[in-house]
Amino acid sequence: MTDIPGRVSRRGFLMGSAASAAYATLMNPSLSYAQGELPPLEEYEPVYFTADEWRFVMAACDRLIPAEGDGPGALETRVPVFIDLQMAGSFGDASDWYMAGPHQPDADPLLGFQSPLTPAQIYRQAIPAFQEWCQTTHGDAFENLDSATKDKALTSLQKGDVALAPELRDFFSFLLQNTKEGYFADPKYGGNYQLKAWAYIGFPGARAAYTEWVTRHNQTYPLPALSISGERA
């Protein structure tokens, strides 16, 4: 995570985020670790994404892990913030990857990622291409479509029915993978706000010590999730 010069540092809120009173009911509430709420997601200023891109990312995350039904959605858990910070960091610029040419982006997919573009560049080029497809096919920008049409559009993207340049063919799989990563990664990366995704599935996070629990078969583990910074759900 890098602080971008000239912008207010976000490190402060990301590192020490807040705990939820709602999920602390399993524990003695006085033990929960609270540092106050973050400003609403709508007020977040993206580090990497432009305003147009951000509207798409917010709307797409909201369909990939929607608020409806059991469990928190991607917006409630601030998944778009996670994706934005990943794009600004070493994942976004593929800094660990072998990026030398020649490139054969239309190669047999079994041979793996072959685009000359980094993930951040792929988001940058694929979002407008997909938006154009949404305009032509569904008559509006993705974020303005109704939920059912958004789901249809994302399904077309996933199935490869949206004609994207071969350099961009991994766009949907990055988007989906990054969305799930943001939902389930430690909150220090900006998503999984208040450990809500962990609390929802019953993953205790960074507890990492279960000696006397191994042989308690088929029983419910009692402690709520814990983050690396010590925040508890």
Binding site: Y98, M99, Q104, D108, L110, F113, Q114
Partner: peptide, 21 residues
Amino acid sequence: PTKMTLTVRHNTEQTALPYRH
């Protein structure tokens, strides 16, 4: 992989491509 990787192909007819990540 940026420091060390290899290339992969399925058979001797194919062009091997880098294991990029």
